[in-house]
Design a protein around this nucleic acid. Structure first.
Length: 334
RNA sequence: AGGCCCGUAGCUCAAUUGGAAGAGCGUCCGACUCCAAAUCGGAAGGCUGGGGGUUCGAGCCCUCCCGGGCCUGCCA
C-alpha cells in the first residue's frame, strides 16, 4: 500500500488540459487519501534554454494554476524545487551510484539530445535528479504516465543500488496509475501527446480565454466524415475523450452516449461534437479560471509556497542527515 | 591551453568576382469544408551572432568579442 506519493511538474507558466485531466485532477483526489508532495521542478527546467527573467514568474503561475485546479496546500506539500536545495545534494550522491550506461539508454535523452545542438550534461543526468526528487521524501509511489516508466525504473534501480552499497535507506517507488489512463492528444496532431512545446494550435490552456478555446477546439483535426460502423479516427476519439472527461465533472454524461450513437449511425456532425466539447469543457474550466483570478489578486500563493518549502525541507533535512551518515560524508557524527 | 570548422526568417538552407537579402517547411488571415484535412489565394516574419576596420559599395574580405561543433593536450 502506497503511503506517500511524489509528483513533479515543470514550471511551463501555465497548465493545459492534458496536464489537468491527465495528472492534476488525479492529484487532487489522491491528496485526500495519502501524503501528497507536489514539486514545481525548476531545476529540471534549466536543462532547456529557459529565460531567467521569466522562470520565477512561471513557477509562481504554475503554483497558482495548481491550487486553482484543486490542489489544497493544506493537504498537499506544494513547493518549488530549488527552495529545497537538498534535491541537488542528493542528486550528486545518487549520480555516483548510477551507471553511465543506464543513462545512455534513456530514450528521452537520446531523443532530445539528437535534436539539440547544445546538449548539457544536466540533460543527461536529468533522470538522476528525478530519482533524487522522489527518494528525498522517501516516497513509495509516483503517479506517472507511459512516457515516464523508464525514468521511474531508473529511480528504482538507483534506490536499490544505494541500499545495497550504503545500507537500507530508500523504498523502491512504485508507479501509481490513475483510475483511468487519461491521455489527451494534441488537437493538431492527434497521434502525439498534447504539449505546449509543439505549438499554439496543439494545446488548450486551462486558463485560456473562452474565445481562444472555442477557436482551438473548432480547428481541431478530424477526418473525412463518419460512415456508419466506422472506427473512430484519432482526432475524433480524442475529442470524445475530452468530452467524456469533462462530462464526468459536469454530470452531463448523457451527451456522450447521444453523440456516440450518432457517430455509430454515421450521422454525427463534427461541428456539433466540437461545440459540445467546447461547452462542456468550459463548464469545467470556468470555476477554475475564477479561482485563479481570486488567488492571483490575493497574492497569498507565494506564502503558501514558502510554507510548503518549509515542510518539504523538514523531511529533506532528515533524509540527508541519514544519507550523509550512511555514505560517510562530512564531519558531523549526528 | 592549442588546432580546424560553423553562425542568414521560428526550422532546414540558398545568395555568381564584393554589386538590390531569397526559397521550402512552419505561422497568421481568407476561400472551399457540417468542423477539420488536402488544395487554392493572400500576408507577416531579418541590425545576415555583436563591435571595429577595408571599400564607391560587405552576408561574403581583415580584426577582436560572443556562441556552437569536432579533434589534441593539461588538471584539482
Amino acid at each position: 500500500m502506497v503511503t506517500r506519493v511524489f509528483s513533479g511538474i515543470q514550471p511551463t507558466g501555465t497548465l493545459h488540459i492534458g496536464n489537468y485531466f491527465g495528472a492534476v485532477r488525479n492529484w487532487a483526489v489522491m491528496q485526500n487519501d495519502v501524503d501528497c508532495i507536489i514539486c514545481i521542478v525548476d531545476y529540471h527546467s534549466i536543462t532547456a534554454d529557459v529565460d531567467p527573467k521569466t522562470l520565477r514568474q512561471a513557477s509562481l503561475d504554475m503554483a497558482i494554476d495548481l491550487i486553482a485546479s484543486g490542489i489544497d496546500p493544506e493537504k498537499t506539500i506544494l513547493f518549488v524545487q530549488s527552495d529545497v536545495p537538498q534535491h541537488t545534494e542528493l542528486c550528486w550522491i545518487l549520480g555516483c551510484v548510477t551507471s553511465f550506461g543506464d543513462l545512455s539508454r534513456m530514450t528521452q535523452f537520446k531523443d532530445k539530445s539528437s535534436k539539440e545542438a547544445f546538449v548539457s550534461s544536466g540533460l543527461f543526468t536529468y533522470p538522476v535528479l528525478q530519482a533524487a526528487d522522489i527518494l528525498l521524501y522517501l516516497a513509495d509511489g509516483v503517479p506517472i504516465g507511459e512516457d515516464q516508466v523508464q525514468h521511474l525504473e531508473l529511480s528504482r534501480r538507483v534506490a536499490r543500488r544505494f541500499n545495497s552499497r550504503f545500507g537500507e535507506m530508500f523504498p523502491e517507488p512504485e508507479p501509481v496509475v490513475g483510475k483511468k489512463g487519461a491521455r489527451i492528444m494534441s488537437l493538431s496532431d492527434p497521434t502525439a501527446k498534447m504539449s505546449k512545446s509543439a505549438g499554439e494550435s496543439h494545446y488548450v490552456g486551462v486558463m485560456e480565454p473562452e474565445n481562444s478555446i472555442r477557436k482551438k477546439v473548432r480547428s481541431a483535426v478530424t477526418d473525412m466524415g463518419p460512415e456508419a460502423g466506422d472506427a473512430m479516427s484519432p482526432g475524433i476519439s480524442n475529442l470524445f475523450e475530452i468530452l467524456e472527461l469533462s462530462t464526468e465533472a459536469t454530470g452531463k454524461t448523457g451527451l456522450v452516449e447521444e453523440l456516440r450513437s450518432e457517430f455509430a449511425g454515421g450521422a454525427l456532425m463534427y461541428s456539433k461534437l466540437k461545440d459540445t466539447v467546447f461547452e462542456q469543457l468550459m463548464e469545467v474550466l470556468r470555476p477554475i479560471q475564477q479561482r485563479r483570478a481570486e488567488l492571483e489578486a490575493s497574492g497569498d500563493v507565494i506564502d503558501m509556497l514558502r510554507s510548503g518549502a518549509d515542510k518539504a525541507r523538514a523531511i529533506a533535512t532528515k533524509t540527508m542527515a541519514q544519507v550523509r551518515s550512511l555514505v560517510g560524508l562530512g564531519t558531523d557524527s549526528d
